[in-house]
Nucleic acid binder design. Structure first.
Length: 807
DNA sequence: AAAAGATCTATTTTT
DNA sequence: TAGATCTTTT
């Protein structure tokens, strides 16, 4: 099958595809067919003497890699496409690192710490060093370490770096360098790499082992990079290591869409690419196939205001299209109503489905208002963002078991599950294990295996519990090594059962447990699919290791299960990058919101905000709307806002501005009405009622209190509705408060003595049976199985219950 | 051990 | 306001 490069590509696309005599930089304007160029170029290389394993193509998301691979497979066949080295920086590098692990003092089973693991480790390091936890916040510390790593600065490099020193001094964090070193060592001790380490160690591997580098250099005869504007210094450096010699490199990107500097992305990588590779041929893809001429021109007129950029003339040959509509709302709530109304009217005018609409905002907290507006009109919607599947507690717990089985030195996995499900190993014991481990430079697992040789001072009972845990994990490890017929799925189900996780989740049928169970089942199903898919590809032994190495680099973006359906899309502008919608609403166009107040007076940051706005506008195919609100609820307060400066950056001939005549009068009226309504609301504001009332009303009817305040604030509420909902919550509240005051009279004093087998009735948990009693006197603790609430451990001194029968 | 109360803080998040 | 996290109470 020959690809027709003449017919299926425009001139500049074709030039970019066919040029392979040296380094090339493809500047791909929004909607200009960037992926098309990349896929055709790879297909072209494959048809002209390159074997698939000679081509390395790096992306930022698994999704991008997967989609591109599929498209290439359609052109050159599945067989050849399969052997391409195409994937995210992180997944490709982890593959290389697993193969070469011994060179850098790791095993190929190394764990990948996610952000939560890293923060948790930092938290314990900060605690161990007895530093002020207010000054040294894990997130801040983590960001600084990440920044160092993205710039390939090692702990020793950091310690001798003047700039880092100054910054740490002014941030009152002189211990940063010590924390970084400790963190680095602890990760090594645990056989773990964080996301940044995957880059750092790849760089170190190539730097310190020239023969290894030579091998990969020879293999990767051609290197392509997608979204080059998002690369950081480390990524750029590794690409340079691989391509400096043969200069066969092609990077594709759009400087105007560089919006990830907060994660280390450096726009200079693309701006100065031609300086690093002096013989670079630059191609510009300037025809936009996505948007109307008006949208493209409006976006051009905006981005023109940026200083730092590669000039280009993006154009569209689609229809002219309508001007970008600008809406002004009195309040954030009204903004929601306007947007939703516009969606409804557009749907009446034209055959749009709900999925033809997207609402894009700068911050996630803005989503709620639109959610409510959509819900009020019964329009289906889907919010992107939030907790990913793999971040959920129950999933992390299960995966921690897998991790510990694959790599018992994994400290974070160890800490996570040593007492889950509860096996009576408390914080004190874990603390002792950690200090013994750090004192002896060994892993927590090593201490657990030989507590005596590392001077762990614990009593007999604790010792037994610890050994029980060790045997449990060792059992799994043996299961894996002894029985090679067991694949990841078999191992997974066994671990979930034997560890007691299944029991724990199946205790009772509370809604939380039910959803936890569902999630675990989904994970297990995923493992099954994973094994099946791998088997189809001809692999036999699909181990837990295989599963983990894949799953630790997956994010929610990849598992778009409930993805489709006719729904309005709500997401941040950041997550909209790379997507397109027929109609786009960019909302919250106000100073201090978009641009974010965080940009301050930094020109660099302000230009990035502008690029972000550029990304937002260029998502639209047919209609684009911008809106702002005069007042907005933020941090529990009403704030007055002014229209975003970016609105003035767009040439007004592309905008349809709100009617200026009578505008200010309208605004004033709106504000006054809003103030009146707000005073009314004050009288019945939930915050002046006793504290526990709010909780109850929220729980019973999540909308009640929020919508009453909000709709009143919009100036559109009828007051009876507002009073009505608050009235009902007050009624619910009073009964709740009387219960709690009655409760205070019981449950104090000397503990009741109970023994296993007794039936008791607890004030809240109801009937239950005493299973076992531990400790005595004030510390006596009973494990009780309740009929409805499951198994619970209660401190008898405080528990509020009475004995029902002796049995 | 679990729940309630108090206090703090507040972009964006491809891996 | 909402959430996360720390502290106190039961």
């Amino acid at each position: 099958m020959e690809t027709n490069y003449i017919e299926e590509l425009n001139e500049s696309q074709r030039d970019a595809v066919l040029y392979n005599d040296g380094p090339s930089l493809v500047i791909a304007g929004a909607g200009s067919g960037k992926t098309r160029v990349l896929t055709y170029k790879i297909a072209y290389l494959l048809e002209n003497g390159y074997d698939p394993w000679n081509i390395l193509a790096l992306t930022f998301t698994n999704k991008a890699a997967r989609e591109m691979k599929e498209r290439i497979a359609r052109q050159v066949g599945e067989k050849r496409a399969r052997y391409l080295w195409m994937g995210t920086f992180h997944s490709i590098f982890s593959r290389i690192l697993r193969a070469e692990a011994r060179h850098i003092g790791f095993t190929s089973q190394f764990t990948i710490y996610d952000t939560a693991d890293s923060k948790s480790l930092l938290r314990s390091i900060i605690k161990e060093m007895a530093l002020d936890e207010k000054t040294y916040k894990p997130g801040t510390v983590m960001a600084r370490i990440s920044n160092a790593k993205n710039h390939l600065v090692s702990p020793s490099g950091y310690a001798s770096n003047q700039e880092a020193f100054r910054e740490d001094q002014s941030a009152r964090m002189p211990a940063m360098r010590d924390i970084y070193l400790r963190y680095w060592e602890r990760c090594r001790q645990a056989g773990a790499m964080d996301f940044d380490d995957l880059l750092v160690y790849t760089y170190i591997l190539f730097r310190d082992f020239p023969d290894v580098l030579a091998r990969y250099r020879e293999q990767f005869r051609y290197v392509l990079v997608d979204e080059y504007q998002d690369t950081n210094y480390a990524q750029h450096s590794i690409v340079l290591q691989l391509t400096k010699e043969n200069q066969r490199v092609c990077v594709v990107g759009d400087d105007a869409q560089s919006i990830y500097s907060f994660r280390g992305a450096d726009i200079d990588n693309i701006l100065y690419f031609t300086k690093v590779y002096p013989n670079t041929k630059v191609f510009k893809l300037e025809q936009n196939y996505r948007s109307t001429q008006t949208i493209v021109c409006a976006a051009n007129s905006l981005i023109e205001k940026n200083e730092r950029q590669i000039r280009k003339e993006v154009f569209s040959e689609k229809e002219k299209g309508e001007a970008i509509g600008v809406f002004q709302a009195y309040s954030d709530v009204e903004e929601g109503e306007i947007v939703v109304n516009r969606i409804a009217s557009l749907r009446r005018e034209k055959e749009y489905g709900y999925s033809d609409f997207a609402i894009l905002y700068r911050t996630n907290s803005q989503s709620r208002i639109f959610e409510e507006a959509l819900r009020k009109r019964s329009m289906p919607y889907r919010i992107y963002g939030g907790l990913s599947f793999y971040q959920r507690k129950e999933i992390k717990d299960v995966i921690a078991y897998f991790r510990l089985v694959v790599n018992p030195n994994d400290e974070e996995a160890f800490k996570r599950i040593i007492n889950y499900p509860a096996r009576g190993i408390g914080e004190t014991t874990v603390g002792k294990i950690i200090s013994a481990a750090t004192a002896n430079n060994v892993s927590l697992w090593n201490v657990l295996c030989e507590p005596l040789s590392y001077g762990l001072e614990i009593n007999k009972g604790t010792h037994n519990k610890l050994q029980g845990f060790r045997e449990l994990i060792e059992g799994f490890i043996h299961m894996q090594t002894d029985d090679i017929t067991k694949n990841a799925y078999d191992m997974g189900t066994e671990i979930i059962r034997q560890s007691g996780i299944m029991n724990d989740v199946c205790q009772d049928n509370s809604p939380e447990n039910l959803s936890r169970k569902e999630n675990i089942e989904e994970l297990v199903n995923g493992m099954n699919d994973f094994c099946a898919a791998r088997q189809e590809e001809g692999n036999t032994n699909i181990s837990l290791t295989d599963f983990l190495s894949e799953v630790s680099l997956l994010t929610d973006q990849d598992s778009d299960k409930e993805g489709d359906g006719e729904k309005v899309t709500l997401m941040t502008v950041h997550s909209a990058k790379g997507l397109e919608f027929r109609n786009v609403f960019v909302v919250g166009m106000e100073e201090n919101l978009f641009p974010s107040g965080m940009a301050g007076d930094s020109p660099r940051a302000m230009e990035e905000e502008r690029r972000l706005f550029y990304v937002a506008i260029t998502r639209a195919e047919e209609h684009c709307f911008l809106s702002f609100a005069k007042t907005r609820f933020r941090y529990g307060k009403m704030e007055f806002g002014t229209p975003s400066r970016f609105l003035r950056d767009i040439d007004t001939c592309f905008l349809r501005l709100p009617q200026e005549a009578g505008l200010s009068r309208q605004v004033d009226e709106g504000v006054q009405r809003f103030r009146r309504e707000r005073q009314k609301v004050q009288l019945i504001n939930p915050s002046i009622l006793p504290r526990n009332l709010k909780k109850v009303s929220d729980a019973v009817s999540p909308m009640a209190s929020a919508s009453s305040v909000a709709s009143a604030a919009s100036g559109f509420s009828n007051s009876s509705a507002a009073f009505g909902s608050s009235g009902s919550s007050a009624a619910l509240g009073s009964s709740a408060s009387s219960t709690s005051s009655a409760a205070t009279k019981t449950g104090t004093g000397t503990p009741v003595i109970v023994s296993p087998g007794q039936q008791i009735e607890h004030e809240r948990f109801g009937l239950g049976e005493v299973l076992k009693v531990e400790g005595n006197g004030d510390n006596a603790k009973a494990t009780i199985r309740f009929k409805n609430a499951g198994e619970k451990q209660l401190l008898l001194r405080f528990a509020r219950f009475k004995v029902v029968s002796q049995k």
